[in-house]
């Protein structure tokens, strides 16, 4: 009996505040835009009972999804989100792996401190960390000042409000998500494996390539998904660091909803984004599961 209550409370909460809202998004994505409150039709009229439900159903259609394929703004935004997420994940890996590797090779007594240094930014406000780059990347910003002073460039680079700034912002904010799983994988790695590889005739570099990298692969995969998945729907970074040319689907959804007040289209955008996300999420879960099984 107590067990039933224990299960029912969180279950009911998630049903009411997670599943039902998502059902509403799905429903509205099938409705039509209207100048009304709420700004869509049809609305379900429960007073009319079963027939009301039938007419309600018959008025739902896939018009918004058709619209998403016809207006090239949307599919371009999906495509460009995907591209940005992919490239940014790659750069994050490029910066994160050497750091995780260095941490794993650091003396035992430094590791907790290094670990804390990686985690500390994670606890700091995301918004503030993105904001910090606005001052650095602007035309008269810190980076341009230094480059001008060093004589590397003769006139300021335009960085803020471009895709470059978005990449920098993503790498910066998502770096801990990449480092931590890779570090965890490298930390578990038995040092004698490298020695065994060298004993069997590998050079340092070969041992790294043939032993360390393959054994840290689960960490690489986990870290990459942890960056890729949330970046795909990212809103704050493109809207603060990106320019008008930066197309990301999270930003499109936000504008569709808040600026255009087109709820049905915003909902359709959300539904499609979620469908796209299912693939990497399933792959990620499978990777985690394999890893968990390997540990047993």
């Amino acid at each position: 009996m107590r067990r039933a209550v224990l299960i029912a409370i969180p279950y009911a909460w998630l049903l009411a505040l997670f599943l039902v809202p998502f059902g509403i998004v799905l429903k509205i994505s099938l409705s039509d835009t209207a100048i009304a409150i709420p700004p869509y039709v049809p609305t379900l009229d429960l007073a009319e009972g079963w027939t009301g439900f039938r007419t309600f159903l018959s008025e739902l259609d896939f018009e918004n999804f058709v619209w998403l394929t016809e207006d090239d703004l949307y599919w371009k935004a999906y495509l460009s989100s995907f591209k940005i997420a992919l490239i940014a994940t790659f750069f994050t890996l490029l910066v994160g792996y050497p750091m995780a590797y260095g941490m794993a090779r650091a003396p035992q007594e430094w590791r907790p401190t290094l670990m804390m240094l990686v985690i500390l930014p994670f606890w700091t406000s995301f918004l503030i960390r993105v904001y910090a780059w606005m001052g650095i990347l602007s035309n008269e910003g810190f980076l341009n000042q230094i480059l001008l002073w060093l004589g590397v460039i003769s006139e300021p680079l335009t960085l803020l409000n471009t895709n470059k700034a978005v990449y920098i912002g993503i790498v910066y904010t998502y770096l801990p998500f990449m480092i931590l799983p890779i570090y965890a994988a490298l930390d578990r790695l038995d040092g004698s494996l490298i020695e065994a590889a060298e004993d069997l005739g590998c050079s340092r570099l070969q041992a790294f390539w043939l032993v360390t990298i393959p054994l840290s692969r689960p960490g690489i995969i986990a870290g990459s998904f942890l960056v890729f998945i949330p970046v795909l729907g990212e809103f704050v970074i493109p809207s603060l660091l990106g320019g008008s040319g930066t197309l990301m689907i999270g930003k499109v959804l936000w504008e569709e909803f808040f600026s255009n007040r087109d709820w049905p289209v915003a909902s359709a955008v959300a539904v499609v984004l979620l469908l796209i996300l299912v693939i990497p999420i399933v792959l990620f879960q499978r990777n985690q599961q394999k890893q968990a099984e390997a540990e047993q």
Binding site: F18, L232, G233, S267, A270, L274, L277, F284
Partner: peptide, 11 residues
């Protein structure tokens, strides 16, 4: 793993 925009919109 749900993008925040979707969670926000649905709520």
């Amino acid at each position: 793993v749900m993008p925040e925009v979707i969670t926000g919109l649905s709520l």
